[in-house]
Simulated assay, not measured.
Amino acid sequence: MIQQVRSLLFLKPGQMMVSSVPTLVTTVLGSCVAVTLFCPRNQFGAICHAQLPSCDNPVDCSHEHPARGKYVECAIRMMLERLNAHGVKRHELQAKVFGGSDMFEGNLKRRGVGSQNAEMALKVLEREAVRVVCQDLGGERGRKIIFHTDTGEVLLKRLGKSGDS
């Protein structure tokens, strides 16, 4: 059996990618959220590593603005636009959502940025009629994920709490 060689990519905060080329995409999440989108029909995969729920300025979400991938709301919309340009329909997509940890103790009366990121990701996917097939959100631990763009598979490792031995 011949296996197809995959390229490797480490996704940094604020980055996203859409690919039909088999790629293993790795990223490490704390309060950030990663959303993967996969179309089984044509084996297109997309992933973002977003840092904040939404931008304050709609101009920041324009196609030309380099910071668009930094925001959950903008990054998901941009991935959907790129997939649509390749003929992928929203009803074909399988979404998986990871991260959104509230890793630092703070004011218990305010929701942390991790919770806000997770909530925004689920809200945008619902609004855009994209089915979420898997989620691993919240908590106090970071996560490392590996996304296979050509199969939609995501491998997850929960990281130790800071201070753990």
Rank of each mutant, 00 (worst) to 15 (best):
M1L: 10
I2A: 10
I2D: 08
I2V: 10
Q3I: 12
Q3F: 14
Q3V: 11
Q4I: 13
V5R: 11
R6V: 05
L9A: 04
L11M: 07
K12N: 15
P13K: 14
P13H: 09
P13C: 08
M16F: 11
M16P: 00
M16S: 12
M17A: 09
V18N: 01
V18C: 06
S20R: 12
V21M: 10
V21T: 15
V21Q: 12
T26D: 03
L29H: 03
G30R: 06
V33A: 06
A34L: 05
A34F: 07
V35W: 04
T36C: 07
C39V: 11
N42T: 12
Q43W: 02
G45V: 04
I47F: 03
C48Q: 00
C48H: 00
H49Q: 13
H49Y: 10
Q51I: 14
Q51E: 15
L52K: 01
L52C: 02
P53G: 03
C55A: 11
C55V: 00
C55Q: 10
D56H: 05
P58C: 10
D60C: 09
S62C: 09
S62Y: 10
R68W: 01
K70T: 10
K70M: 02
Y71W: 10
A75C: 08
R77C: 02
M78S: 08
M79N: 05
L83D: 05
H86Q: 15
G87W: 08
G87D: 04
V88K: 00
V88T: 13
R90M: 06
E92Y: 06
E92M: 10
L93H: 09
L93W: 07
Q94L: 08
K96C: 12
K96F: 04
V97P: 10
V97R: 07
V97G: 12
F98S: 01
G99T: 12
G100N: 05
D102Q: 07
M103Q: 13
E105I: 09
G106K: 05
G106R: 08
G106Y: 11
N107V: 00
K109I: 06
K109T: 04
R110A: 13
R110S: 13
R111V: 09
R111C: 04
V113T: 14
G114Q: 06
A118F: 04
E119Y: 00
M120W: 01
L122R: 12
L122N: 09
L122H: 06
K123D: 13
R127V: 07
E128F: 03
A129D: 13
R131D: 07
R131Y: 07
V132G: 07
V133K: 00
V133N: 00
V133M: 05
C134G: 08
C134K: 15
L137S: 11
G138S: 07
G138M: 04
R141M: 12
G142R: 03
R143N: 02
K144H: 08
I145S: 00
I145W: 05
I146E: 06
I146Y: 02
T149W: 02
G152M: 09
E153N: 12
E153Y: 11
V154H: 01
V154L: 03
L155C: 07
L155M: 14
K157S: 15
G160S: 14
G160I: 14
K161F: 12
K161L: 15
S162D: 11
D164I: 04
